Simulated assay, not measured.
Amino acid sequence: MAVSAERTKDGGHLRPSSISDGVHERIYEKLMALEISPGARILIDGLARELNVSQTPVREALNRLEREGLVRKAHLVGYSAAPQLTHKQFEDLYDFRLMIEPEGARRACHDMTAETLARLQLAAADMEKGEQPVDSNSRYSRFARADAHFHDEIMKIAGNEVVRQALADQHFHLHIFRLMFHSRVTQEALEEHERLVAAFRASDADAAYAAMHNHISRSRDRLVAAFA
Rank of each mutant, 00 (worst) to 15 (best):
Y94M: 14
D95W: 07
F96D: 13
F96Y: 11
R97P: 03
M99W: 02
M99Q: 07
M99C: 07
P102N: 03
A105Y: 00
A105E: 08
R107C: 05
C109S: 14
C109Y: 06
D111H: 01
D111G: 04
M112H: 03
T113F: 01
T113V: 07
T116L: 05
L117P: 04
L117R: 12
R119I: 10
R119V: 09
L120C: 05
L122Q: 12
L122K: 09
L122V: 07
A123G: 01
A123P: 00
A123H: 02
A123S: 04
A125S: 10
M127Q: 08
K129C: 09
G130I: 09
Q132I: 08
Q132R: 06
S136W: 05
N137R: 15
N137Q: 15
N137K: 15
R139D: 14
R139H: 07
Y140M: 14
S141Y: 01
S141V: 05
R142K: 04
R142W: 02
F143E: 14
A144H: 11
A144E: 14
A146K: 02
D147K: 02
D147W: 03
A148D: 07
F150K: 06
F150G: 09
H151K: 09
E153R: 06
E153C: 08
K156F: 10
K156V: 14
I157H: 09
I157E: 13
A158Y: 01
A158M: 10
G159N: 10
G159H: 05
N160L: 04
E161N: 07
E161Q: 09
V163D: 14
V163W: 08
V163S: 12
Q165N: 10
Q165Y: 03
L167Y: 11
A168C: 05
Q170T: 12
H171R: 10
H173T: 06
H175K: 12
I176L: 14
I176C: 12
I176F: 11
F177C: 10
F177E: 10
F181C: 15
S183D: 14
R184W: 08
V185C: 08
V185H: 11
Q187G: 12
E188M: 09
L190Y: 01
E191T: 01
E191G: 03
E192H: 07
H193Q: 13
E194G: 06
R195H: 03
R195D: 11
L196K: 06
V197S: 01
A198H: 00
R201W: 00
A202W: 04
S203Y: 02
D204N: 14
D204W: 08
A210P: 00
A211D: 04
M212R: 04
H213A: 15
S217T: 01
S217L: 03
R218D: 13
S219V: 02
S219D: 04
V224E: 10
